[in-house]
Structures are given as C-alpha cells and as structure tokens.
C-alpha cells in the first residue's frame, strides 16, 4: 500500500513504532514493573483517588453540590484571611461549595472518558479489522473516510456536530465516541495487515478454522497491545475534550456539576473568586496527569526497547 505509507508514518511517530506486538506476560511481572516506576505508582495512586472520589462522592462531599446559599457566595478557601472551615475550598457565585462540586465533577469526567473510549475503541477496532481483512474497495472506503476525518481538528469536528445536534451528556459521549475511531482504526488495520500474514494464522486457516474464529481468536488478540495503550491516553484526551466543550457552553448541561461548567463559571469571576477556576482545573490536571503517567508506563512496559531512553 504505497499511498498509505505517509499518513501511517505520521501515526507511527506516536504509536506504531513504539508499541510492538507483544502479549503482556504474567500479572506478577506487571506489578513489579509498576512498583519500580515512581511515575507509574504516582499515576496509579492519583487515579485510584479520583475513581474513589467519583464513587464515594455522596459520602465524601461535605455539602450538596447543587445547594446554593446566596448569602454565603464567593467565600474564599479556608487558608485565606476570610475563609471558613465550613467551605474548605470556598464557594462559587451562587454560594455552592467548590469542594463538593469538584468531587462530584469527577463523575462526569470519568463517565465521559471511559464510555467514549469504549465506543471509539470498539468502532475503530471493528473498522480497522474489516479494512485489513476484507481489503479492496471496503478498505479504501474506510481509509478515505479516516483521511477526511483527520482533515478536521478533532475539537472542531465535535463543535460542528454539537452545534447542530445540541449538547448534553449523552450527545457529548456519542460525538466523542463516534468521531474518535480513526486512530484505533488505522493502528489496528496496519497491525492486522502484518498479523494476518503470520504463520500461526495461516496454520489455523489451513486447519479449517472458520473466518470469524480466526479473526477473533487469532488476529484480534495480537493487535490489541497498541489499542490498549492508545485507549489509556484517550481516556485523558476525551476528558479534556469534554471539559473544553462544556467550558465553551457546548457540552454537558449546566445543571450537572462538572469541571467544565465550574471552569466556565470561574472564568466570569476571575477577579472576585480565583479559587472557582483553580480547583476544578487542578482536579482535571491531576486526573489527566495520572492517566498520562500510567499510559507512559504501560507503553514502556509493553515495549522494553523504550526503557533506556525515558
């Protein structure tokens, strides 16, 4: 496929070159490797904290995230001169507790990040496999659609679609999920193209294995490694994309406590209440950081060649 060479080379800088096909070995080794990397351990810890706070939000949050008390609006955090211990991270323009809203906000990010990755991953793996195995016109069609989608900055495409169909949690998840398949599709296609020529696939085929079994038992498991790495990083990018859309007023409904909404509110009160924009953003940064650290470690773990440079 000479014409596919250049675009693929572009993807490869980030993924394909760096993630060879290699099945993860035993869990024990995985744990030891995780233990060695300080960054990975930090990432895992932070992420665990974030997931816990999403699940335990009703227990952890000191206030109702929607409860507004206008008389207590724009209270600064506890360590400042006018802060009170009732509101550790202060209150917003309606007197809602910033800490509680930040804790609850992790739910939206987590839901969007994970479900959108599952949708785009499933779609991309499926289309990539079809393209690689069917070949011919279907392959050409799928890859041309991918080319067209890559001609748009991701966020711009999402904005254009949201503009027409409207925002809301479900729409945001669907839009991010459906528009995000391209990177998976291309990686899976290029991996599957080489895997399907391997001897063990040929052997299975010679033994009369049905083609569906062949694809799902012999080809799919061997193209999943880069998909897993990509999916890890994408959880973080979708969280940022959702927060960006929401921040621009095009994402999740303002009635749901989310970091994007809090940042949009905070932007209006940068002079009167800097803490409104700082803390939800910090929560987002720490979450994204934890996922990126885990992703880096996962990529290195799956590719020992990288260990000496990073």
């Amino acid at each position: 496929m000479p014409e596919a060479r250049v675009p693929e080379a572009r993807v490869s800088v980030e993924w394909a070159d760096r993630v060879p096909i290699m099945a993860p070995s035993r869990l024990g080794e995985l744990w030891r490797s995780l233990h060695r990397g300080v960054g990975a351990l930090l990432g895992a810890g932070l992420l665990l904290l974030m997931v816990l706070s999403a699940f335990l939000a009703p227990v952890l949050a000191p206030h109702d995230p929607l409860e507004a008390e206008v008389t207590k609006r724009l209270r600064p955090p506890v360590w400042t001169a006018k802060g009170t211990s009732e509101y550790l991270l202060g209150t917003d323009q309606l007197g809602r507790d910033v800490l509680s809203r930040t804790i609850y906000g992790s739910r939206v990010s987590l839901i969007v990040g994970i479900t959108a990755v599952v949708i785009s991953g499933a779609l991309g793996v499926l289309l990539g496999l079809i393209a690689a195995i069917q070949g011919g016109r279907l392959d050409a069609l799928i890859m041309r659609v991918a080319d067209v989608q890559l001609a748009f900055p991701f966020i711009l495409l999402a904005i254009a679609v949201v503009a027409v169909v409207g925002g809301g949690l479900l729409n945001v998840i669907l839009i991010l999920g459906v528009t995000g398949w391209v990177s998976y599709g291309r990686v899976v296609r290029s991996q599957a193209l080489s895997v399907k020529e391997k001897e063990y696939v040929e052997a299975a085929r010679a033994l009369g294995t049905r083609s569906l079994v062949l694809v799902f038992r012999h080809i799919l498991p061997n193209v999943m490694t880069p998909v897993i790495v990509l999916a890890t990083f994408n959880v973080a990018s979708y969280m940022v994309a959702e927060a960006s859309l929401t921040f621009l007023g095009l994402g999740v409904q303002p009635t749901i406590p989310s970091w994007g909404i809090m940042l949009a509110d905070g932007r209006e009160y940068m002079r009167a209440g800097w803490w409104m924009a700082i803390f939800p953003g910090l929560a987002l940064v720490l979450t994204v950081l934890s996922i990126n650290l885990l992703g880096d470690w996962l990529r290195e773990y799956l590719d020992p060649r990288l260990r000496h440079t990073e």
Binding site: L263, A277, G281, L284, V285, L289
Partner: peptide
C-alpha cells in the same frame, strides 16, 4: 514536560490571566 502534556490549554489560559493580569497586572487579559 510530563506536567505540560497534562495541562489543558484552556485552564492554562485561565491560570495565566489570574496570575499575570489579575494579581500582577503585567499583561492584558
């Protein structure tokens, strides 16, 4: 660099405005 890859641009923007415009008054917001 690792940290920089994890900071969404819109939050960095808000942070810069708060520090350099609101607090220090050095740059126009």
């Amino acid at each position: 660099a690792i940290l920089g890859q994890s900071v969404p641009s819109f939050w960095l923007g808000l942070l810069l405005i708060i520090v350099f415009s609101v607090w220090l008054g050095w740059l126009p917001a």
